[in-house]
Design a protein around this nucleic acid. Sequence first.
DNA 1: GTTAGGG
DNA 2: CCCTAAC
Length: 613
Amino acid sequence: MGTVVGTVEDRRDMFEGNAQTRITPFSSTNQIGNPVAYKLVRVSGDGSLVPATDEEILEVNDTDMHIPSDTCQTIGYLATDEENVEVDETDMHIASDACQTIGYLPAEGIPSRLSQIESSEAINSGLLHSDNVQPYTDQYNEEMLQKVEQEERLENVHGSQMPSIPADANIQCSNENNFFEEDQVHHEALLQDECKMNESDMMERCSNAVASPKETALSAAAQKPDFSRVRGEICLDNLPIKALQETFRATFGRDTTVKDKTWLKRRIAMGLINSCDVPTTNLRVKDNKLVGNQEKSNDVTNAIRKEMGDDVRATKMKDAPSSTDHVNGHSNGGNHYYASEDYSSEQRAAKRVRKPTRRYIEELSETDDKQQNDKSVIPSKDQRLSEKSEVRSISVSSGKRVTVTRMVSLAGSEIEVPYVSHVRRSRPRENIMALLGCHSSYLEDKASAAESNLNLSPSQLSSEVVNRDSVEKSASRPVQNEFATSDENNVEPEHIDSSGNSSDENNIGVPIMQGGALRRKHHRAWTLSEIAKLVEGVSKYGAGKWSEIKKHLFSSHSYRTSVDLKDKWRNLLKTSFAQSPSNSVGSLKKHGSMHIPTQILLRVRELAEKQSQ
DNA sequence: GTTAGGG
DNA sequence: CCCTAAC
C-alpha cells in the first residue's frame, strides 16, 4: 500500500453526520465552473477528516511515502460533484488497519458531512477515480504498460526532434506549471465545447460527472494555486532526468531510455494515476513545438489540441477504455516510491484522471448514439438529457461525423421509406384502380391489408402501419403477420366472421387514411370459415357463380372479391385433389398453408366432381 | 360487371 | 393475389 492520489467526488452522503472537519458549505451549486480549492485532509481512524497540518503536508511532499503495510495514506481530491457513486461499490482491497487519507478538499467548503467517511471509504475515494472505478487488475497494468511502451517507442523515434529540456529546474518548473495550467483550462474548455456541440445525454453526463469535478479542481488550481500543487510540480520538475527515469522504472517496473523530461513526467504521472489520458500525451505530435515553446506556445498548443486531442484521446480510449478507471492501480504503481516528487504529478494526475474518464464516457456515449441512430432517431432514454440528445443528434450529424449524419438521415429515411414503398405500391394500384374500380374492392383491399393487424388490435393500427411500412421493403413480414392472424381466426371460425364483419368496416377506413395506397399487399389469408362459406356457396350456387356467392355469403367480407372466390376455389380444388387421391383421409398439406380440414377438402372434391359432370 | 386463366 | 382477356 502506498500513498494514493485520486479524485474523489464530493459525496455528501459520505460526509454526513458529525464532522470534525468542517468545511464551509459550497457557496454555489456544483455547477461547472465553480472555483474550488482543495486542501489536504487526513482521515483519522474513526473516519473523520482532519485538515492536514503543515507537518503532514510536508510529510506528503517531502517524506517518502513508505507506509507500513498496515497503514495507508491516500491523497485525493474531493470533488464537489456527486457523480461517483460507484466509488462505494468498488471494493478496494486495501489491507490496512489504519489508514490515513490525505486529500484535497474543496477549500471553499466541503460538505459538512465529511466526517462520517469511513476510513475504508475514504481510502476508496482517495484511491479510486470517481468514475467507473474498477478493481485494480493486472490486465490494466499491462494495458498501461503497453501504452507507455508504445509512446516510449515513439518518443525514442522522434526523440531527436524533441528539444531537450533545460536542466534548469526553476525555469522549467514555472513553465511547466503555466503550461499545465493553461493546458488544463483549455482542455477543459475544449471538452466542454465538445459537450455542447454534441449535446448528447452522455455528453451531459460527462460534463456533470467529469467536467465539473475536473473543472472545479482545475479552477481551484488555477484560481487558488495550491501550494502543495505548486510544490508538487516543482518537485517533479526539479528532478533530473535520471531521477525521472528512475521513477519511471519504479513506476513501470522497467527501464526507459527516453530522456525527454516532459515525457517522463507525463509517463510517471500517468502511471501513478493509471490514467492514460495525461493531457500531454496527446501532444506527442506537437511535442516538438510544445516542448520547445512551452512557455509561449500555449495558443498553438491549444489549437493543436483541439484538432488532435480528441482523436488521440478517442483512440486511446478505445485501446484501453478501462485505463482511467483503475485509479487504484497507481497505488500499486509505486507511489511510495516517489511520494514527494509525485505529489504534483499526483495532483495533476487527479485532475487528468477526470479527463480520461470523461473521454471514456464520451466514447461510450458516442457508441450509444451510433446504436441509437442505427435503430432510430428516438431520443435517449435519459430524460434529463433528452433535450440535448435531440439537438445533439442533429449537431452531430451535421458536424463531426459523416457516419452519424448518415445514420440520422437513415433514421429519417426509415420513416420515409414506407412512403417510398408507398409510391411503389401505388403504381400497381393505379393499374388496379381501373380494374378494381369495378370491383369496388379497391378500398377494401387496402383495408384488408391493415385488417390483419386491426383484427388483433385496431388501436395499434397507426403504429402498426408505420412499422409495417418500414419493414415492408422485405414484405416478408406482413405476410407472416397475416398468417398469424389467420391462424387465430382459424381457431374460432365463428368469431372470425363476426370480427371480420366489424373489422372490415373499420379497417377500410383506417388503412387508407394511414398508409393510403401503401397498405396494399392485402394478403388476406383465407380462414376456415371463409373456406367453409365458399364451399357452401359453391354447393348452393354452383362454381362460377362467384358474384352470387360473394353477395350471399361474403357480404361481410367485402374484401373478398369474386375473383378472390374463384381463385380460392381453384386452389381448393387443387389441394383437395392433390391430397385426397393419395390419402383419403390423410392430409399432406404444405407447411406454409394452413391445413384445411379433410372434410372440407372432401366436400370440395365432391362439388368439383359434381360441377364437372 | 363477371369469369376464366395465367402469372 | 395480381392482371387480363373474354364475356
